[in-house]
Write a protein that binds this DNA or RNA. Structure first.
Lengths: 217, 217
DNA sequence: CTGAATTTACGTGTTACACGTAAGGGATTT
DNA sequence: AAATCCCTTACGTGTAACACGTAAATTCAG
């Protein structure tokens, strides 16, 4: 048996969703709520599996509600329903901690699917959302590839070694000790790196090293 | 009419795919190729819409082939078929420039769907691939969120201003001039930032600033 | 083998950082 | 009203890092 809570500030929507779920034997709606202020308190006192929440807009209040619920009641899975399936709203709600999102392409069967999926501990996104996220991811993958391949190859292996340690906040002296060379030599290496890459400052050198996966953020 | 090329080093696979596509009136296989060395030349001399390529393994040769084809024949859409639908192979082929990927869950109808989708200029990924990519993206989104929210809020607006300029490789003197304050004050601000955030070096300060979107890479 | 690049290193002057100290202002608390 | 906390400003002093030039030994490729 799955216990559901419904939250929306319009009672009509509550009734509509409620109707869609009537007749399902293993789904039970145990809370209807149209008041944001009492929602958290009520949810805290009950053992609810899935909260279905309608997102009319992407207000900070809504996002905060999701974040707060995830903190106070981690077991509760939040399923978002929204007619607005813009990238922004989807990404922000997921980041806030929603475990499912039903876009405007969803029907009764995908609602049920989503509830069962969330109950089983997995995420659920309707088709349109899936496409949207996927496109975004793919293009970010491709963008990644574009931004690779600067001229790390021009640096010698020694120079990269130095850069790597320096990028982990070692002092020149520590680097010198590690390689059994003089501090002045470490300085020379860094000078050469700066000249070779035409960098103006050490800040730029950090950025370069990060871009080229020489150091981790 | 869509013109297709098939590439695989095993002739059996070529015949198998060919069989799946026979009887489709608007799809025409115009090139069967089992030899990597002549593939590019033949493709260059023909006007082919979709290349179907079987990926037995994720070798550099295969990935390079995709990259090279995308450079020399940009109009050509590459559709990958593979029984290995590991994350690695999928991500790498997509990054290399493949426009579609059919995992082991695919059947004849999804092959057709993929061909038409690619011909229309869109990407196509079979269900298992879609799930795989989506999970990866979602977890990266959530990881992002985890790594956010360090204690940027503890920095005063003045301190952030200083950090921002310094992160763009301005010298202390330049920053001082811009704000009509002493160089020593700029130093003080940076000292306070380091103390407050418990940073050991300026390298760490750059990393902090990047993590918290104060400066761009 | 020869020229170019790498690795090593120093000199000298400037800039940045570390750590402490401190005064004045604004906001909040007691 | 006084005490407290934080922010902004600033200095003193010593150390570390950087800028720029120079240079020798080594390595590497044409």
């Amino acid at each position: 048996m799955i216990d559901i809570a419904l939250f929306d500030e319009h009672k009509l929507v509550l009734e509509g969703i409620s109707g869609l779920l009537s007749g399902i034997t293993d789904i039970r709606i145990v809370l209807y709520c149209d008041n944001r202020d009492v929602l958290t308190e009520k949810l805290k006192s009950m053992q609810i599996h899935v909260l279905i929440m309608n997102m009319h807009d992407i207000s900070v209040r809504n996002l905060n509600l999701i974040v707060q619920l995830n903190i106070t009641i981690p077991k509760l899975k939040i399923l978002i329903i929204s007619v607005i399936d813009s990238e922004e709203i989807v990404l922000k709600t997921i980041k806030a901690g929603a475990k499912g999102f039903l876009g405007k392409d969803s029907d009764r069967s995908s609602l049920l699917e989503a509830i069962y999926t969330l109950r089983n501990g997995h995420d659920y996104y309707s088709k349109s959302i899936t496409h949207l996220l996927l496109n975004r991811y793919i293009s970010s993958l491709k963008a990644d590839e574009m931004n690779q391949n600067t001229d790390i190859g021009n640096l010698s292996s020694r120079q990269i070694e130095i850069l790597k340690l320096w990028g982990e906040s070692y002092t020149n002296q520590e680097i010198a000790d590690r390689f059994f060379i003089s501090v002045r030599t470490v300085e020379s290496h860094k000078n050469h790196i700066m000249q070779k890459l035409n960098l103006k400052s050490t800040v730029d050198m950090v950025k370069f090293a990060i871009k080229n996966n020489i150091i981790e953020i």
